[in-house]
């Protein structure tokens, strides 16, 4: 009964790997847009009585993840004039391989975690691996890329993963909280973009490794 959902989740997982392996920022943004679309569809694939709740959630996710946040990101990379990520601390191929490894491991630990968390048997099989892989991919980007802009995108990907994890609570969580969370994430991206831009304005670059004057 979760075929559609699993299909979407697999697509998201593949997109993660794509994001990990590419250096072109615009490609990363495109991938997040597609991910956002898939995320928007996900609530609708869950059978439930509360369809209005699901629809509102779906629309707001689409609005934020497909339109607003990518728009912000594109605006930002235009402003700071950066097209691609160069020489990350972890090269693209190793990043990709680590991403694959995480995907495998998450497939492996998913059943155990389900048991520990006492999730129901008919739980969507792909949900946990997809969530973990997406979140970790985002984190890898956050932690290994040199440009502040890329880190903003990494955060976006990471939050996508968390969102997937949040679907487990779809029926239990009040809509207000979910909307608040989405708003929160959007605001975070906005503030990150703002600070990133101010860094660019003031220092003329957005290289995170050069932001290491404060120590001790």
């Amino acid at each position: 009964m979760y075929e559609w959902m699993d299909t979407c989740l697999v697509a998201i997982l593949v997109l993660d790997l794509y994001i990990l392996g590419t250096s072109r920022l615009i490609a990363v943004i495109q991938a997040t847009i597609v991910q956002g679309m898939l995320l928007g569809i996900l609530p609708l694939t869950v059978h439930s009585q509360e369809t209005i709740h699901h629809w509102i959630l779906s629309i707001s996710v689409l609005l934020s993840n497909v339109f607003l946040m990518p728009y912000l990101a594109i605006l930002l990379i235009r402003k700071v004039e950066i097209r691609r990520e160069v020489e990350p601390f972890l090269e693209f191929t190793p990043s990709l391989m680590i991403g694959m490894a995480i995907a495998f491991i998450s497939f492996w630990i998913a059943p155990y975690s389900q048991k520990i968390l006492q999730l129901p048997q008919h739980f969507p099989r792909m949900l946990m691996p997809a969530a973990i892989t997406t979140a970790m991919s985002g984190f890898i980007i956050l932690a290994t890329r040199r440009k502040a802009v890329t880190q903003v995108l990494g955060y976006l990907v990471m939050e996508n993963g968390i969102y997937i994890w949040g679907l487990t609570l779809l029926d239990k969580m009040p809509l207000l909280v979910e909307l608040g969370v989405i708003l929160g994430i959007f605001m975070t991206v906005m503030v990150m973009a703002t600070v990133c831009y101010r860094v660019y304005l003031r220092l003329g670059h957005v290289n995170v490794d050069e932001l290491s004057n404060l120590k001790g």
Partner: peptide, 11 residues
């Protein structure tokens, strides 16, 4: 420990 590199802090 406090070397100034954000990436390591995340780790």
């Amino acid at each position: 420990l406090q070397h100034g590199y954000l990436h390591i802090y995340m780790l």
